[in-house]
Amino acid sequence: MTRATANRAGALARRVAGHVARGLVMIWLVATISFVIIREIPGDPVLAMYESMLQKGMSPDQAERATAVLYGFLPKGSLWEQYTGYMGSLLHFDLGRSLSTPGVEVTSLIGSAASWTVLPVLAGTLLSFLLGVTMGVYAAVRRSGRLGDLLALSGSLLHGVPVYVIGLLLTAIFATLWPILPSGGPVDVEFTPGLNAGYLGSLVRHAVLPVVTYTLASYGGWILAMKSNVVTVLGDDFILAAELRGLRRGIVFRYLARNAILPLFTILALSIGMLFGGSIFIEEIFNYPGLGLLLVNSISSRDYALMGGTFLVITIGIVVANIVADLLYSVIDPRVRSGGTA
């Protein structure tokens, strides 16, 4: 017993270590790529910045330091020195400073954008997951009935519609034709931020359309995935065996639902990881100042430090989600938990 448990824990630790190692390699690759972009882009933005500082009358020393602060590495020196300098500042969570919002640190820009992204998209993901899974079970069990067909059809249709179409439609309906909700922005400016009813109410009103858009956009995928999982498990021998043993309907249903939902948890964890970057369209449509919008703006204003930093954070989000998904699966699926494959 104890040895088996130790073995299982060991196997799990090895798997997690493997994920962490792969994740670190991925993060390192992205960091290196963004270094190369900043450094090697035509017209070398770093050197250009350095020279414009000189022209503004700074001493070479001052110009060098100013550029280093902006990009996280020195404008001159060997490639290797620049690279190690850049990586060194990354290790201190220093992503440099933004150009388009002069003087502000990239990390603080990303931090405030992340909070605008995470909450609405998290809410949208969880809502669409709960809704899609419930409806998926129903659509599978009643797949020969009218309502079951209708549900599955709604899933296929919504699944095929691009997210920006859903977003634009919702804005057209609820902000223009029948203006009951704000068409964009995160919050009305007249309220002072804080825990007061006005501010929170405005916050929620602005979040409704983005959250609903996100929910509708991913609901189709969940309902289809859950329906097909339930249909597969329904055909499994152990469900018929449970019925032949006269188990109560409720118990058979639990057997069915637990086995069908299991694979979806992994996808859920992964899609929560993707939310860091996956909301670009929604944030553009609703002018919602999240990470997606930040990335788009950094690209259009050639704010390379911000762009690299945002990419890096999105990558880290995905890597962490992968690890969480794997851990989650190990915790809920006993077959994986014990390292078995049968």
Binding site: D237, F238, L240, A241, L244, L247, Y255, N259, P334
Partner: peptide, 18 residues
């Protein structure tokens, strides 16, 4: 189950894996 016991043809697969 209670009045008529049944052993399934594919009894190897007759158990809930979870």
């Amino acid at each position: 189950g209670r009045k008529v016991g049944y052993v399934f043809q594919a009894a190897q697969n007759s158990l809930n894996p979870l």
